[in-house]
């Protein structure tokens, strides 16, 4: 069954001006600095709930930097600074008094390379709920549910206690997705989640994304334009400006970006003239 918001947005997908759309994550005029170097300039992005929003652009244009601001992963790099606002349900996640731990529970992340813990399959998925102090019973239920949601359950149910490192690359990435889902996030950030996977494993991830967007808001960074065109509802095209700071050049429904780009730079990139 489609939710009302879903239906609304599907019908009216090309028009972002619709009044009823639900903005889950709203980045406004974000600037980002590594020391003195400005890596993002005045980047804005309104991410709709239960939609897939893709960030595309050539290497070094700040896509990943932008993404990592949404759950404050940039805090881990000393000497970085973000200005502007990133509103998650209206609360600014860049504000110093936000609970980063709680934020990261709400905004999960899938990384470029599958990074399972060197623990058992079960313990990988159970780690987040374990941190939250859930009961054994609850944890075992959520592990099964998360593994089913990522299509891994049938493949691993007989070897849950075996090391996660024995899984294939694609399975490892789906395990990481299950691990992220286990803490019941609202938003999932994906940083080129399929760039290290073969085409079949990539397809699995893309199919999963279509399933997951019924319940989760997804933001994906990809430098694969076909992937963005295949999976996303909205696309933001980013580019470095003359001072090497990343900017959002154009943002809109994926269909518009790929078929009717307004900016000539977007068109050049889409049609393969550079990047």
């Amino acid at each position: 069954m489609m939710t009302w918001a879903n239906m609304q947005a599907d019908v009216a997908a090309p028009t972002t001006h619709e009044a009823e759309i639900e903005i889950k994550l709203d980045a406004r005029h974000v600037n980002f600095f590594y020391g003195d170097f400005q890596a993002l300039q005045d980047a804005s992005l309104a991410v709709q709930a239960r939609k897939i929003t893709a960030l595309i652009g050539p290497s070094g244009c700040g896509k990943t930097t932008f993404l990592r601001i949404f759950n404050r992963m940039h805090d881990l790099t000393p000497g970085t600074r973000a200005t502007g606002e990133v509103l998650l349900d209206g609360h600014n996640v860049l504000s110093p008094d936000i609970d980063v731990i709680n934020l990261r529970r709400q905004v999960g992340m899938l990384f470029q390379r599958a990074n399972p813990f060197p623990k058992s399959i079960y313990d990988n998925v159970a780690y987040g709920p374990h941190i939250l102090g859930w009961s054994k019973q609850q944890i075992s239920e959520i592990v099964e549910e998360s593994l089913k949601d990522t299509g891994l359950w049938e493949e691993v149910k007989d070897r849950l206690q075996r090391s996660a490192l024995n899984l294939s690359g694609g399975q490892q990435q789906r395990l990481c997705l299950a691990r992220a889902l286990a803490v019941k996030p609202e938003v999932i950030l994906m940083d080129e989640p399929a760039s290290a996977l073969d085409p079949i494993a990539t397809l699995r991830i893309e199919e999963l994304m279509q399933e997951l967007k019924k319940r989760y808001t997804i933001v994906i960074v990809t430098h694969n334009m076909q992937q963005s065109a295949r999976v996303s509802d909205f696309t933001a095209f980013m580019l470095m400006n003359e001072r090497r700071a990343g900017e959002v050049i154009e943002f809109g429904p994926t269909d518009d970006i790929f078929n009717r780009p307004k900016d000539s730079r977007t068109e050049d990139y889409i049609t393969g003239r550079f990047g």
Partner: peptide, 18 residues
């Protein structure tokens, strides 16, 4: 231990010491 392991843990909302 790869940095990505630390990021994976922290991205789940785990405190750094844990």
């Amino acid at each position: 231990v790869p940095q990505s392991m630390r990021e994976a843990g922290l991205a789940l909302g785990a405190p750094r010491w844990r």
